[in-house]
């Protein structure tokens, strides 16, 4: 068997530790001047691909892919610093891609780049759609194992443990296949300085949507985005008497 040719799609999203704010127009989340990082689930996917190689599974190459604004290249570089071999960036500043559009795009990447394993995050933390992996499996007609918490590959055979309600489920399938990653799969590594330097020299191909034959036009329109109502803060009382009168005031006693 020839080795694994892995594709890992990554997305640049608002850092999960940052509290997102709705923009003034109430149409989307404010992204200007907000710290962005790699979607955490995608970090798990990269880590898993690199660990497969480190576990002596024959890996031919790890390709990282992203579609989005120019800054997404930083995310691709980070993935390469973690251990991916090369990157493709479809530069798209304006159109916000929907899961189906991304899945169609990825299908073409898989075919053009002759991939036999795709590891995706189970969802991106900005739109929480959680659809791309499944759609891609459907479009390619490949087996899929979603929400993986453990992945082992021997020869053509993939064994994936996934977390389901009340326990775990173990799936087996033959390559090629689609895996989506869940939180307990691994703990992503830090990008080390020497690897960050090396990543700068790794090949990164820049493409546009026109290089692929896909229809990515939007099918959905965001009508309105609103923040949840703010929590009403509690009050403090000075002493027991204060508390009793407060409780009376509220009709609790």
């Amino acid at each position: 068997m020839s080795g694994l040719r892995i594709l890992v799609p990554v997305k640049r999203v608002i850092d999960y530790a940052i509290k997102p704010r709705v923009n003034k127009a109430g149409t989307a989340v404010e992204t200007n001047g907000v710290k962005h990082s790699m979607n955490p689930f995608d970090e798990l996917s990269i880590e898993q691909a690199v660990r497969l190689r480190e576990a002596k599974v024959p890996v031919e190459d790890i390709l990282v892919f992203s579609a989005g604004p120019t800054k997404s290249q930083e995310t691709i570089r980070t993935a390469m610093a973690m251990g991916a071999d090369r990157g493709i960036h479809v530069v798209e500043e304006k159109i916000e891609l929907e899961p189906l559009g991304v899945a169609k795009l990825l299908k073409q990447v898989v075919e053009k780049e002759n991939r036999n394993l795709v590891i995706l995050g189970k969802q991106s933390i900005d739109d929480d759609a959680g659809q791309t992996g499944q759609m891609l499996a459907g479009l390619l007609g490949w087996p899929q194992a979603t929400q993986a918490s453990k992945v082992t590959i021997e020869g053509e055979q993939c064994t994936v443990t996934r977390e389901v309600d009340g326990g775990v489920e173990t799936l087996k399938a033959k390559l090629p296949m689609i895996i989506t990653t869940d939180l307990r799969l691994n703990e992503p590594r830090y990008a080390s300085l020497p690897n960050i330097m090396k990543a700068k020299k790794k090949p990164l191909e820049k493409k546009t949507l026109a290089d692929y034959d896909v229809d990515v036009s939007k099918r959905m329109k965001t009508v309105k985005v609103i923040e949840p109502p703010p929590r009403q803060g509690g009050g403090k009382v000075d002493d027991v008497d204060g508390m009793i009168s407060k409780l009376k005031e509220l009709g609790a006693i």
Binding site: D15, Y16, A17, M38, P40, Y190, L193, I196
Partner: peptide, 15 residues
Amino acid sequence: IVADGVVAQDETQLQ
């Protein structure tokens, strides 16, 4: 000067 090092890629790593 520095033998090895890492840079935090996101807020979690920073912490």
